[in-house]
């Protein structure tokens, strides 16, 4: 994109042909990513279609019981969706405020030196393998929580969502900070000129001015929490249960099962490609893919809007 055209030479030596071949090879590499997407969609669809031939989509989307292997078998995805929702809400309660405050600190308060230390340190949070986060939640966080909530289950949504929250802080903070840094200094200076403190400037000028970037970071982080697999599989358990809103404490202190954990459970014992349980794996996968893909697109769309605002 960024280069000038090659000069037109009359002597060829088969150069033109070689150039065309090279271009084609590179083009194929780039198109591979599109093929990957098509591959994902086709794989998910083909087995999902086979699944929905046996279980009606209405039954799948509105059923309140998930027991793919136990008699009587039930393929209602709602317990898994609500389980995922519980984790996502818990993680959001941790990551969104902390991530936003972090972004404000990095963009408005931190010195260059502090930033150069803190930003890589935050990136480490996102770099630790999620299976290790799951281990942390199970072995260290849950016993610590048990001293506060004696009735907490060994596998519980609370410790899993706390740890997922910590994991996604950098997603919120780094994208939000980018958006805040893009806010022109003239806006800040105007506010300072009116006698505003840094607090007022941050909360009344910078945050509102970068709200689309912040929203985009929130959506992306939530999408990540929804797709998070290992930490919730290890720490939140494998009990598909519909959220009981009459018992809000129990929702977080009990074991649940997310969509991703259900996929791991099914995937670990069945790779035949024949059984209905195998096919249900792809139906859940498709649900997950559609939700996260839509969120990523929305996030991207919002982000592209704020980029246009200040550039």
């Amino acid at each position: 994109m960024s280069s000038a055209n090659a000069p037109d030479l009359t002597r060829d030596d088969g150069r033109t042909r070689r150039e065309a071949v090279v271009r084609l090879v590179f083009f194929v590499c780039a198109v591979l990513s599109v093929l990957t997407t098509i591959g994902i969609v086709l794989t998910l669809l083909s087995d999902s279609v086979a699944f929905f031939a046996e279980v009606s989509p209405v039954q799948f989307l509105t059923g309140t019981s998930w027991s793919p292997a136990n008699d009587p078998v039930n393929f209602g995805v709602l317990p898994l969706v609500t389980g995922t929702l519980v984790i996502t809400i818990g993680a959001a309660a941790v990551a969104l405020p902390i991530g936003l405050l972090t972004a404000i600190y990095l963009s408005e308060y931190a010195s260059d030196r502090a930033r150069s230390v803190l930003k890589p340190a935050l990136e480490v949070l996102a770099g630790v393998p999620t299976v290790i986060y799951g281990y942390f939640a199970l072995v260290y966080v849950t016993p610590a929580l048990a001293t506060i909530f004696p009735t907490i289950d060994t596998f519980n949504a609370l410790s899993a969502s706390l740890i997922v929250g910590i994991m996604i802080i950098p997603m919120v903070s780094s994208i939000s900070e980018d958006a805040m840094s893009a806010v022109p200094d003239s806006l800040r200076n105007a506010s300072y000129g009116l006698g505003a403190t840094k607090f007022t400037v941050s909360t009344s000028v910078v945050v509102p001015a970068s709200v689309s970037g912040i929203a985009s970071s929130f959506i992306l982080a939530l999408s990540r929490a929804i797709g998070e697999t290992m930490a919730v599989t290890i720490a939140a358990g494998n009990t598909p249960r519909l959220v009981d809103l009459t018992d809000p404490a129990g929702v977080f202190l009990n074991s649940i099962q997310t969509m991703t954990a259900a996929m791991v459970q099914l995937g670990a014992s069945d790779v035949t490609g024949q059984s209905i349980a195998y096919k249900s794996l792809f139906a859940v996968g498709l649900t997950l893919f559609v939700i996260t893909f839509a969120m990523n697109l929305v996030s991207e769309w919002i982000a592209s809007r704020y980029r246009e605002e200040y550039r």
């Binding site: 027991s67 292997a69 136990n70 907490i152 289950d153 060994t154 596998f155 358990g237 494998n238 009990t239 074991s255 459970q265 670990a268 014992s269």
Partner: peptide
């Protein structure tokens, strides 16, 4: 009931309640 192929998960669960 909480069903799993992983017996050790059962130990953990029973220990917890």
């Amino acid at each position: 009931y909480s069903a799993t192929e992983k017996d050790r998960t059962i130990v953990r669960g029973v220990r917890g309640s």
